[in-house]
Each structure stands twice: as C-alpha cells, then as structure tokens.
Nucleic acid binder design. Sequence first.
DNA 1: TCTGGGGTCCTAGGACCC
DNA 2: TCTGGGGTCCTAGGACCC
Length: 426
Amino acid sequence: MAIALIDANNFYVSCERVFRPDLEGRPVVVLSNNDGCVVARSAEVKALGIAIGTPWFQLQKQAQQEGIIAMSSNYALYADMSNRMMRILSTFSPIQEVYSIDECFLDLRGFAPAHLSRIGQAARLKIRQWLGLPVGVGIAATKTLAKLANHVAKKYPEYQGVCNWESLNTQTRQTLLQNLPVSEVWGVGRRLTEKLASQGIQSVWDLQQTHPVWMRQHFNILMARTIRELQGESCIALTEIAPTKQEIQSSRSFGRPVTRIEDLAEAINVYTVRATQKLRQQESICGAVRIDIRTTPFRPDKPQYHASQTVALAIPSQDTRILIKAALSGLRHIYRPQFAYAKAGVHLTEIRSVHQQQRDLFAAEALDIRSDQLMKTLDAIHTRFGHNALQPGVAGLQGQRDWSMKRGNKSPSYTTCWSDLARARS
DNA sequence: TCTGGGGTCCTAGGACCC
DNA sequence: TCTGGGGTCCTAGGACCC
C-alpha cells in the first residue's frame, strides 16, 4: 500500500502570486470574507509569528511596519486553480481523492517502492511548471502517515518537497516522530492535544506507542483509528467518488450590523438561492431548512441574541421558491427587532437523492414538471450569466444591498472572467 | 469601527417502545 | 426491604478538518 498526499504551500497566497510575481518574496496574507481575518499566510508572514485567524484590524499597524500586503479572498480564482491542479495530478494515478481545495490523495499501489520518490518529484515539478504553484508531497502506507510525511517534506528542506516515509530507516522515523508535536497529527486538534498532554503524551512518537484498545476506552473510536494508522495499519480508505453532501449551508457575515427584518429577509433569500443551487447540482432534495441569525459574539458588552429555527417541508423539495417561503417563515418566527445582527445563514438538511422523491398523492403531476423546468432554466441562466443574474424580487437589487460583504482588495478573476483576463505587461 | 465559511462524524441524553 | 433491561431513534453539542 502506498498513498501520496499532495498539497499546495500557502495555496491562496500562491495563487495570487502566480498572477502577481512582484509579490514573490514579500509578506502576503489573504483575508476571509469581509476582509475579516487572516486565512492564508506566506512563509514570510509565518516567520513574523502571525497566527492564522488573526483579525485583520489588529494587524494594521504591524502590517504597515513590516510591509505586509493583504489581499481579499478571490474564490473564483482559487477554485479554478484548484481544478487545474487536480486535473494534472489525476494523470499520476488512476485513483485520486480530492480532499480539499488544495490537496488530494493518490493511490500509488502497484508502483515499485524504489520509484515512489521519483513519482512524487515528477508531480511536484509538473505542477510548478504548468501552473506555477509550489506543492509538497508525502508518501506512506496510510493516509495519516502520508499527511505527516507531507508535513516533514515541507518542514525540512533536505527532503526537497517530497518525503517517502516507507523509504526512511527506523532510526530516522523515530527521530522525526519524537520531534513532531502530537498536534501535527491529522485528527488531533486543540482539545485533544490538551487532553493527551494531561496523560503525558506530547510527541507523535508518544501517541504511536500507545495501545489503540486502551485509548479507545479513554478517548473514542476515532482516536483508536488514528493510532492504528500511525502504526502503519490502513483504516481510512481512499474515497474516489465524492459522496453527496448530507447538509448544505450558505451563510455570511454582514458588511455592517443589520437590524431591519427586510434586510435580513434579503440576505436569507440570497443564501437560500445559493444553497438550493448546490442542492440541485448534486441532484438532491431536502426535507427541512434551518435558518439562523446572530449578533456579534465579539461584543459581549452589547445585547446578545442567537436563534435558529428549523422548518420542515410538507414534501421534500429542491424548488427555490418553496424553500425561500419556508426560510422566511422561520425568520419571522425568531426575528427580534431590538438587536443588531452580524450574521445569518441557511442550512438545508434531511437531504436525499431526487430519485427517492416521494410524490404528493394529491398534487397534480404537471405542477412538479413545471417546477423542474423552471429550476433547470434558472440554473442554466446562472451558469451562463453568473449566479446573481436572476434573483427573486424580494432579494433586493444588488447595488442597493448595503449589508453585502466588504472585499476591499480583491484581485481580478484572471482565469474565469473574460474582462479580467491577464494581459502581458509591456 | 473592524473578528470567515462550509463541511463530517461521534457521543450523550431523552423519549419512546416492548 | 426490594421498583428492569434492552433496543431504537432523534437532537444538541462538541470536536475535528480545510
């Protein structure tokens, strides 16, 4: 068994640099929606000790002193670069699992062990040459070890971006594991790190030496699985076909606090439109919609309110109009006028395949067909003219939505929009 | 003044049933 | 004196991932 994990270094920052070579070697961050907090950092920024998730406004002064360049996130660009990267990597193995926007697993079973590192180097070089993105490669017998090897490949320059765990000798492995904190392990987050520390488990080595059955009792089944994976026993299979989502959400923080129900209704509309598009894309229907609204948790001195409401549908549906109606009834139920809302969201749940749809005994079949056709037309228009091309009347006009998010420094959509196409500089 | 968004899985506890 | 046991289903909350 040999699994490779390939992922891009500082993916969002690297995407920006492909089209802005002048950003190379300079400290660059990419910000979340609303230019809220740091979601990607260049190596130069990491070296300054700036943590992921730091609110941008707290960094302004330091940014000025250090010359940090901040970009708003440009998801159209990152998604397109991701697709290109995945397509290139898919040529290295018949079995690929796209795990996130910037990383995938490849099944390298069947390749001679002696060739694995070279395959890793070839993949790395190709992504660099064809796309301009730097990537790291980890190869091992299990996914968890491949993730760890990938980390090693990036951390230690002598590996030149590729670490084949299986080719390392016992002593090297032990030294590496002893030097890696347990928090580097896939599946071990902040809370588990604390709990493990209280048991005297600090390094990955410490964790690997524990007994999975004992740990199953004191933690949970996921922990036992992680330990087995660290010990070289593959427990997490590669999933080639992305399973359909069991929950779909669309939520956003507002560009400014919102108090009027009309504005909230506009936002709920827009989010429901987005969520139902995703729902139809995976050929699903949903049985319930939940909406939630909240004030900012970062101002405890102000009145706080957080409420959510689930509205069950009489018949599972994928019709935007039906879902909007349900969502708005939920909103009216939980809305309180005295608060300043910072965020709203729409969640679709009880999702199942459209092919398992239960028909309404009393509804005319013709109505269903018309709904299907309307939704297909809507999706076609959105594909062609962008997802804001058509909105239900209640969603308000885009230019007038003053609650929309802020994106002060977004790069052009170089690869997905004709008018933004990158031009050669003269 | 200003703090992201979208997912998955597991567990505990309550309701309910026989 | 002594008040069962086991199963299923659902939901909320927590932990994790990128």
